[in-house]
Computed example of a mutant assay.
Amino acid sequence: MKVGFIGAGSMGSLLVGAFLEAGAMRPENVTVATRTRSKAEALAQRFPGLRPASSNAEAAIGADLLFLCVKPSDFRSVLSDIAPVLLPGQIAISITSPVMLEQLEERLPCKVAKIVPSIVNATGSGASLVMWGTRLTPEDRAIVTELFSAISRPIEIREREVRAASDLSSCGPAFFAYLLGEFAEAAVRHAGMSPETASCMAAEMLLGTARLLTEHGFTTQQLQERVSVPGGITAAALETLRNATAGAFPAVFQVTHEKFREDAEKVREALEN
């Protein structure tokens, strides 16, 4: 299977590396086009056989799967570059949430999907958010799902859910890294613990918590009840934490949804004008 990537920024490079390291793709079947050629060349050095492309069209020609890993503002020019060379049997996969499937199907002659990855896919874990275009066959869906299963847990969502789902799966690592950092720093300030020890303990705690939730059948509420004994230290501290964070995540969702609407409107204007 031949695969093209347009864009080798943070997430594009992450996907290339994750797929190749998982053995889901072979380097000699991968072509990467990017405005900064050195990024594609760096991937070629890391994965011998991978081929940097001289243009977006070159990456698109003959690709069974074509990943569009570019910013919303770049979509107009990219779609103009690739639309003339794409064929109906090819599959274009956008990882950019504000670009709608309908917009892609209006401007490309091929099949399309939208799949939003997460930075944690680099570890072979986390979710990938899957949305299908109307032209894909069940066989197409199975191929794409199998591919993403090599680096993540593909979860099908409705396109109107993409912003909230992205907050959970894609933005979530940044949110919880911030909270974890604050948690560890508090231990340093109050107990004189070394930052390295505190960070290590906090990270191991988060890893174990995730495994309890994903592998051992705990819900978040059950886990709180299991750790927090009524009248105990954890219960008292948990109440303080609830009071301090009340309304924080609804506010986060409000901000991300407002920004998403702005980005989606900018995409619409760019594609239509």
Rank of each mutant, 00 (worst) to 15 (best):
V3Q: 02
G4L: 13
F5D: 14
G9L: 01
S10C: 11
S10Y: 08
M11P: 02
L14Y: 00
L15C: 11
R26T: 02
N29G: 03
V32C: 05
T34R: 02
A40D: 05
A44M: 12
A44Q: 04
Q45V: 00
R46Q: 12
S54K: 14
S55F: 04
N56P: 00
D64E: 15
L66A: 04
L68F: 02
C69V: 09
K71G: 03
R76S: 08
S77K: 09
I82M: 08
I82W: 10
V85Y: 01
A92T: 06
T96A: 15
S97G: 03
P98L: 08
M100K: 15
Q103A: 13
E105G: 00
E105V: 00
R107Q: 05
P109N: 02
A113R: 01
V120R: 06
A127C: 13
A127K: 12
L129K: 06
G133P: 01
R135L: 13
L136D: 03
T137C: 12
R141S: 06
V144R: 10
R153I: 03
E161I: 01
L168C: 05
S169M: 07
P173F: 02
A177M: 12
A184W: 13
R189C: 04
A191P: 04
A198H: 06
C200L: 15
M201G: 00
A202H: 03
M205W: 15
L207V: 08
L207S: 09
R211M: 02
L213F: 04
H216G: 07
T219M: 04
E225R: 14
E225T: 11
S228C: 10
V229K: 13
P230E: 14
P230G: 14
G231S: 13
I233V: 15
T234W: 08
T234H: 06
T234M: 04
A235E: 13
A235M: 11
A237T: 15
T240I: 13
N243Q: 14
G247D: 11
A248N: 06
F253T: 08
F253A: 13
E258Y: 09
F260I: 01
R261L: 10
E262Y: 12
D263W: 09
E265F: 07
K266S: 12
R268G: 09
E269C: 11
E272M: 06
N273E: 15
